[in-house]
């Protein structure tokens, strides 16, 4: 008997990855919508105004989750970049590439909402303090990564160069995170840390957690879908893609559920043989 495949490499196979996303993405989207509705309700109708800032603090419910996602997605991207550089696993490069646009979006929103929050509270849209500057650098790293990929015609070479950039830029993430502790910044310190109780009212913290969950699920759904499209394009000439397309043709595009069931059945069958 042949040794079983290492489980964590299962979804590095494009075919399995496609089936996984097909089954997972609708649930991620549903989860994101549910959490977002709960989070917005809690944030706007349960959480009271802040004793100092009044209602402008409600920007926090998107500012903080997007800032966290901006950093988190970069760490993920760098991790996939390492896997791509060392083990030359194609799927890792696909994942890194597909994380970048969403990471850039999240970072941009964090900067944008930060500016609109800073204007009424600090009295300025922007200052060049360590926290704000390093976050701007994060946005440029995402944009640089995407630009580098599209600038090099050779997909393989461009991917490797971009992975290296992603890897180099990862030192910026701890700088962003700890900047408010290492230096005097205009930006206040951390309200939420792993080691101590959050310094905000429970209803505010609940809204923040719900919105963070919604953001996380949204990012997962969008990046996985993007990677799925990328995989289909790359593998357009393989038999499994033709099978997927044909099955969809037979079942009809209007019934995606049937196609999903068929696909996962096919994958299970393949696993048995």
């Amino acid at each position: 008997m042949l040794p079983r495949r290492i489980p964590w490499l299962t979804f590095a196979a494009p075919r399995n990855f496609h089936a996984l996303v097909q089954a997972l993405a609708p649930w991620l989207v549903r989860g994101a919508v549910v959490l977002a509705i709960a989070g917005l309700y809690t944030g706007f109708f349960v959480a009271p105004p802040d004793y100092q800032q009044g209602n402008s603090y409600r920007i926090l419910f998107i500012h903080v989750p997007t800032a966290w996602m901006g950093m988190f997605l970069y760490l993920l991207m760098a991790m996939y970049a390492v896997i791509h550089l060392v083990w030359r696993i194609k799927m890792a490069d696909v994942m890194a590439r597909c994380l970048a646009p969403t990471g850039a979006l999240m970072t941009f929103v964090a900067l944008w909402t930060g500016a609109l929050w800073g204007a009424p509270t600090w009295g300025t849209f922007w200052v060049w303090d360590a926290r704000l500057t390093s976050t701007l650098v994060l946005l440029f790293l995402y944009l640089g990564y995407m630009a580098l990929r599209s600038a090099v015609d050779d997909r393989e070479k461009g991917g490797r160069a971009a992975s290296l950039l992603a890897l180099v830029g990862v030192v910026n993430v701890p700088i962003i995170y700890f900047s408010v502790e290492w230096w005097h910044t205009l930006h206040q310190g951390m309200s939420v840390t792993l080691t101590s109780a959050p310094s905000m009212a429970p209803s505010m913290f609940t809204a923040l957690l719900l919105m963070t969950g919604a953001c996380w699920l949204y990012c997962a759904a969008v990046t996985l879908r993007r990677a799925q499209v990328d995989v289909l394009e790359r593998e357009a000439d393989t038999q499994w893609v033709r099978d997927v397309v044909q099955r969809r043709e037979v079942n009809g595009v209007s019934r995606p559920g049937a196609a999903v069931a068929d696909e996962s059945a096919a994958v299970r069958e393949e696993g048995r043989s």
Binding site: S56, I59, V109, W112, L116, W117, P120, Y218, V229
Partner: peptide
């Protein structure tokens, strides 16, 4: 009105929502 901070709050949420919709449509 958001206690006079309406433009800041809705400017934040509005742009976020618009960008998410744009990303989903493009995808």
């Amino acid at each position: 009105a958001m206690g006079g901070h309406g433009p800041y709050v809705w400017g934040s949420y509005g742009v976020f929502a618009a960008l998410l919709i744009a990303e989903v449509l493009l995808l």
